[in-house]
Amino acid sequence: MKLRLMAVNLIFNGNDLLLMKRAPERLLHPSMWGAVGGHLEPEELSDPLAACLRETEEETGFRPDDLTDVRLQYVLLRLKEDELRQQFFFTSATHRRDYTDTREGTLHWIHREEVLREDREMAFVFRALLAHYFEFGPAPHPWVGTAGWSEPKEGQGPLEGQRPLKAQGPLEAQGPLEAQGVDQALPGIRWIPLLDPQVI
């Protein structure tokens, strides 16, 4: 299994969030909406904040001293085929609204009430993370999220881009959720607070 490590910065200016409409030739999520960020370099493996600040400056022109209240808010784990993806999501604020152009895509300040618009195409994990942050953040501690399948609650519909998973075929050909009797599941994220238990 391969490992992909990424650091992301959710940059706010008042009630506006800086989002990127990714270029169509990008490897990950082409033409979709995302945040500023990218892969950790080998020397950054023990310092995701350094990767976050480097990617922010490369993609926006914002230097570290242009940002305030930079904090880790989420660690997100997702299995994508044979690749384990771990993303460190930081939040920050800036007084600047001007940014430099980037080949990664086009940057836009979006009011928080417009961020999760249904016609704004984005990865389901990113949409779910933003929905969680807008409801519970900013938090005094980071959250850890694991992406997977979950049985929908009564009256709950799929998020944008989600499709139910239905059990088909004999039991031995079914996945673990189906084998447990779950005949319909939706992609989702389970969140738990990351806290120091203060024990050895």
Rank of each mutant, 00 (worst) to 15 (best):
Q73S: 11
L3V: 12
L77Q: 12
E55Q: 13
T60A: 04
F12R: 10
H95M: 12
R54Q: 01
G105Q: 01
G169N: 06
R163A: 12
I189D: 07
M32Y: 10
Q198V: 06
E57I: 01
L79I: 15
A50H: 01
R97L: 11
R54Y: 02
E114L: 10
L171P: 05
L45P: 00
C52Y: 02
C52E: 03
D119H: 00
G137E: 05
L159H: 11
E154K: 10
W149V: 01
L171Y: 03
S150E: 15
L67I: 07
G188Q: 10
F126Y: 08
L5A: 06
H108C: 00
N13M: 02
K2N: 14
R26A: 15
A128P: 01
H39M: 13
E113N: 11
F136R: 12
P48W: 08
E83M: 14
P152Q: 08
Q162F: 08
E41S: 12
A173I: 02
A139Q: 09
P197I: 07
E178T: 01
E83L: 14
A185F: 02
D66T: 07
R190K: 06
L116H: 05
W109F: 04
F12Q: 09
E25C: 04
L19A: 04
L28M: 13
F90W: 09
D119G: 01
L186I: 03
D196V: 04
E154W: 10
K2H: 12
W33F: 12
V199Q: 12
R112F: 05
L17M: 09
E113T: 13
A139G: 00
G61K: 03
K153T: 08
A131E: 13
A167P: 07
E114G: 02
P187R: 09
H95T: 14
E41W: 11
L194N: 01
P193E: 06
R163D: 15
R22P: 07
V115M: 05
L130Q: 06
R120T: 07
L18G: 03
Q73Y: 12
R120S: 05
H39V: 13
M32N: 07
I189L: 11
D65F: 11
I189Y: 04
T100I: 09
H108Q: 11
A51L: 09
Q87W: 06
F90E: 08
D101A: 15
K21C: 10
G14A: 06
L17R: 09
M122E: 03
L194F: 09
L49P: 03
G169V: 07
P193V: 03
L10E: 04
